[in-house]
Design a protein around this nucleic acid. Structure first.
Lengths: 325, 325
DNA sequence: GCTTGCTATGGAACGCATTTCATACGCTAC
DNA sequence: GTAGCGTATGAAATGCGTTCCATAGCAAGC
């Protein structure tokens, strides 16, 4: 396979000149440029990008850590990331970690090994302290609210958003409020739990352990929540559900069992997914696509400029009133 | 930053020995191995993977071409790919192409540029002939049925699956059959159209242009189909819908307008998505996760062995009977 | 006439790890 | 006793493009 040296030899120029042509540098005469391009054409020359990466110390690639690509939440964030990456001519490496810390660490090691230029952490099992250690090797942006860290983050104001939702429910007259959460110990999940408990205490609202359900990641788990309502001595009046697909499961299963929405059980969803629109689920839109897009733009900027000053970008949210509350 | 040469100098051995330690080669005495490892530790040495890639001509990375990551269909295939890639310690580059041919070509060029070891094409706007031209640079696996090509493919027997579905409907007594398709000109879509038209002709079933709808990719487009039924002079008795989320849109919107499922309009979905299970949509499960997993295993095998003999792996499908037909 | 500065071009160093080949020691087998 | 093999180790070649630095011609400015 031809290399740059061969091109130079045949075109009768130096490798420097060939490199300049390849990279559109100035100071190459039109005649030589033409000869070089022609030689490249003739020999079907293809640049060995590994040599370029070695030489430049850059790869034009960013890795993305997330647990499950087929959960709507993550695929939408990924969509935002991928769209911006395409615009910036960057490549994205997907690490679907299943929250396995060692796999997530491997990705950070790739940063250290110069295999990638940066890392976007959409959701992780790693502690912020661990991530911080890798900041010296390249920029990292997380999509979680980690407070003031050495790495950047783009995040929804989960505390405020959740409170806002609770206030909205309270204003509507609801007092018995239930809560379906994804992971019990996730960073955003913890924030929401705190918000939930604080709000209940503040307003002296009733609470029962069975109104709070964890590990609700799928439609099926939403359906299970609906079924759990049936034998319940005292039911909540409304559920806040993190994820419209989970809310959809809850609603459809509840209706199957003759419960009316919102009269018997009201539901406020999260994420504003297409299924929520279809079922007219009231929801909190937290702009997931924008989160991905913003995360990429920040990391791209930091790679480009070499600036490591962390950026904390707070995204807003909005309640979309539909029919389930 | 320390490199292998520095490690060698300080540890008092040759770079060869350091390399051997790094790669777990035999023929290194325990004492030297220990010294080297200790030096690596001390200097916080990190291997420059770009040099490794240049030197070995391999990158341990496979690129994936697909149009939209946030469509369930693709995110599930990606899940299968990602899972296997993790097991094989391979990295996946995601190219979300939006079916832009030039972006898809760029990925094939990456193969030529040795930036990646192989390409998995989940769905593409490119012609098979174009893909074939890149086979000399590395293995390519597509997830479409392209017939006998120089590249491998993992595919659902769309023709058979679709016919099977049609037969199932006919056996149930349906004669007026409608059809909602994603892309009009997709490779799988074309096969299904052919199957559809052949079946109708064969059994002299009635057909109307308005019973065939294209560009149904989302829940909303399914809902639009439901609305289009209302003013229709003569309605189909059943719709085959490629994608359970589209079927879900159709069903939910139809019910909103008082249509009973399946009495007024029956629906047979595709892809066996979680939402289909929840709504008890009868569907054709075409094992998308397995498709991704199989695609990765094939390309990994071909990278490993250097074997370029194309493999055509046909996946089976099954009708899942639930309540909408 | 001489200094400055821009255009054009090439030599050589640099980024870094892998791998082939050569060498050498020690032990077993015949 | 020596041929042969396995273990251990290093020198040097290899993969390939980028970029700093040096050189030189030529034109504009004083």
């Amino acid at each position: 396979m031809a290399n740059i040296k061969e091109i130079a030899r045949i075109a009768g120029v130096s490798v420097t000149t060939v490199s300049r042509v390849l990279n559109n540098h100035p100071y190459v005469s039109e005649s030589k440029r033409a000869t070089v391009l022609q030689t490249i054409e003739q020999l079907h020359y293809a640049r060995n990008m590994n040599a370029v990466h070695l030489s430049t110390g850059r790869t034009g690639t960013v890795a993305v850590i997330l647990p499950y690509i087929n959960l709507f939440y993550f695929s939408v964030v990924m969509d935002g990331l991928a769209h911006e990456a395409l615009l910036a001519q960057y490549r994205l490496i997907l690490c679907q970690s299943n929250y396995a810390p060692d796999e997530e660490l491997k990705v950070l090691e790739m940063l250290r090994n110069k295999e990638i230029d940066g890392v976007v952490v959409v959701s992780t099992a790693l502690l912020p302290e661990v991530i911080e250690e890798y900041m010296e090797y390249g920029p990292v942006v997380t999509c979680q609210d980690n407070g003031e860290r050495r790495f950047s983050s783009v995040y929804i104001e989960h505390y405020a958003a959740f409170r806002h939702g609770l206030e909205y429910l309270k204003d509507k007259g609801y007092r018995k409020i239930g809560y379906c959460e994804g992971r019990q110990n996730g960073s955003s999940a913890s924030i929401r739990q705190t918000a939930f408990q604080a709000f209940l205490a503040e307003h002296q609202l009733p609470f029962r352990q069975e109104w709070m359900v964890f590990d609700c990641m799928t439609e099926e788990s939403g359906a299970a929540v609906a079924r759990s309502l049936l034998p319940m001595e005292e039911r909540p009046e409304v559920f806040m559900v993190t994820g419209d697909h989970v809310a959809a499961g809850l609603i459809i299963e509840a209706r199957k069992h003759g419960l009316r929405i919102p009269e018997d059980i009201a539901v406020l969803g999260f994420d504003n997914q297409p299924i929520g629109r279809l079922l007219e689920i009231s929801t909190i839109d937290n702009h997931l696509y924008d989160m991905g897009a913003a995360a990429f733009r920040i990391i791209h900027e930091q790679i480009r400029t070499g600036n490591r000053q962390p950026v904390y970008r707070k995204l807003d949210y909005e309640i979309i009133e539909r029919g389930t509350v």
